[in-house]
């Protein structure tokens, strides 16, 4: 490889400029979201595939009803509100406004509230005594697929609560500020992705309930 010249520099600078680091971290965030999207996508595929097959008519065995729409759309609403709070918190941070800490706290609290709704969803997953295995288990593949989606949503929401609290703490201690706000942006991007994923799972589980077969 030909190296035409070596840049002449003053003192060796072993840190890239902040904007370069920010671009790099932004790409990392998007790639992590891509990997996460494969996970969420596989769970939605699982739901739709098992519904389409309806093996041994056990998608929704007798006595199983569709999940509560109030809970699933309540979850979407609270998560969307929390995303709004994070977004407005990010704006406040970038403008150096004082309400940044409280907005981040609001977002974290809303994520926790959404997590509580997620727990309520899990509590409603129907169980039944399986006639073939003779074991009390989760009733059919509809309930199983819901459980997987609900657990995934819950795990994401707990992570969001951690991130929201972290932003609040970091702003409070000056680590994230109007001069260094990129981390707040990353948190907001991830937050919006999680809200979209939760929205997608609500859409799928609302539109497609009973098996066509």
């Amino acid at each position: 490889m030909t190296i035409a010249h070596i840049e002449s520099v003053g003192p060796a600078v072993h840190h890239d400029p902040p904007e370069v680091v920010a671009q790099r971290q932004l790409l990392g965030v998007w790639l992590l979201i891509a990997g996460d999207a494969v996970i969420v996508g596989s769970l939605l595929f699982t739901y739709l595939y098992l519904r389409g097959l309806n093996t041994q008519k056990q998608w929704m065995p007798a006595g199983v009803h569709g999940a509560s729409l109030v809970l699933s759309w309540g979850l979407v609403a609270v998560t969307a509100l929390s995303a709004l709070a994070v977004w407005s918190g990010e704006q406040s941070i970038r403008r150096g406004k004082k309400d940044a800490v409280s907005m981040a706290l609001v977002a974290a609290v809303l994520a926790l509230a959404a997590s509580a709704i997620g727990v309520a969803q899990l509590a409603q997953i129907p169980h039944a005594l399986n006639s073939t295995s003779g074991v009390r288990q989760i009733a059919g593949s509809y309930a199983s697929s819901l459980l997987a989606l609900d657990m995934s949503n819950l795990a994401h929401l707990v992570l969001l609560a951690f991130l929201g609290l972290a932003v609040a703490v970091r702003v409070g201690r000056g680590a994230t500020s109007a001069q260094a706000w990129t981390h707040a942006r990353f948190v907001r991007i991830f937050w919006v992705w999680v809200a979209s994923a939760i929205g997608a799972s609500a859409v799928v589980t609302t539109l497609f309930v009973n098996s066509p077969h």
């Binding site: 098992l50 056990q58 288990q137 989760i138 059919g140 309930a143 199983s144 697929s145």
Partner: peptide, 11 residues
């Protein structure tokens, strides 16, 4: 006790 892969539970 889910049934993703067990046909008797709809998997």
């Amino acid at each position: 006790g889910t049934s993703f892969y067990l046909s008797f539970g709809g998997g």
